[in-house]
Design a protein around this nucleic acid. Structure first.
Lengths: 163, 163
DNA sequence: AATCATGTAACATGATAAGTATCGTGAAAG
DNA sequence: CTTTCACGATACTTATCATGTTACATGATT
């Protein structure tokens, strides 16, 4: 099935927001993600409930960061969007009566647990701030057009805003 | 999303087949898995194509193991059933034009690659024969009714056949 | 010839993220 | 105070894919 892209999308948005002063509208964000404003609101509602972002209605409203990016990990965002299951495979029955099935499930779940622990550790070890910094480094190293630190005063993040 | 249980189911079936002399029908296997014979044939077709099992039509027909279980790993079975993606999360766009999105995707995919490598290594390290032996050990240790080694001459694997 | 079992095709179901349309609510601007 | 803007919420549709189901053809055994 199609993969859950909520974590990926929210990280994308948050990094843009970190480089943006003033709130960003759902409409604006939706264009960045190539989707619909309602999808944006739906997904970002989880981040708001967790206190990572704030939303304001009316003129000049929109979404803004509401937490210290040093203190929020990728894992936190994963959980804020619903913490969906990481794996696409698993056992059919939770508590099988068949001993063979139970043994198979345990073997598989052991392996999955280990991989999940690794993934959780990796995601939990990276803060949004670190991810933003590694983006900066990537720009310098890879020759991407680098969004200048001082060029955003009036809301312009032109270089990497679209898509 | 509902999880793909083909690997789990096929391991379940293969372990039963290893303790069973003579072919097992799709009907019989379907009862074990609590599903439909067509689902069984569809899924086991991949194992047959890979040479791990054999199927025979007509009276006395059905499915039988066709390979040395010491030489077939859990990973082999995973691949034989289509090797579906292990993860339920991922990025939305393959080749994003946005540098921020590209950086986010790379960070996530790095972590996923690592977890996948771990899982692949784990699944690749266990043979079906080892899994069967660990099932035996589990029976002895955990007080499960242990299917006796000599009690299956006429097709009886009564203790752990159903479910 | 009858029966059994697989092979295959075609279609239905279930679950879930994602996409869409619509209306309500509150805040700022004039 | 009316208009406009932007979020909030609900309801519904779409897309996807493993799984479930029905039906029929094919080949092997009796």
């Amino acid at each position: 099935m199609r993969k859950d892209s909520r974590l990926s999308r929210m990280l994308h948005v948050l990094l843009h927001m970190a480089r943006h002063d003033g709130p960003m509208t759902s409409e604006h964000i939706a264009r960045m993600l190539q989707t619909n404003p309602v999808v944006v609101r739906r997904t970002m509602a989880g981040l708001r409930d967790a206190g990572y972002v704030r939303s304001e209605k009316g003129h000049g409203g929109g979404w803004a960061i509401a937490a210290d990016l040093e203190k929020v990990s990728l894992l936190d965002i994963h959980r804020a969007v619903g913490g969906p299951s990481l794996f696409a495979i698993g056992a059919e029955h939770e508590n099988p009566a068949c001993a063979v099935e139970a043994a198979v499930n345990e073997a598989l779940e052991d392996a999955l647990r280990e991989a999940e622990a690794l993934l959780v550790a990796r995601l939990g070890a990276v803060s949004l701030a670190e991810l933003a910094r590694s983006f900066d480094a990537r720009c310098v190293a890879g020759g991407w057009p680098h969004p200048g630190e001082g060029a955003q005063a009036s809301g312009s993040i032109a270089t990497s805003e679209q898509r």
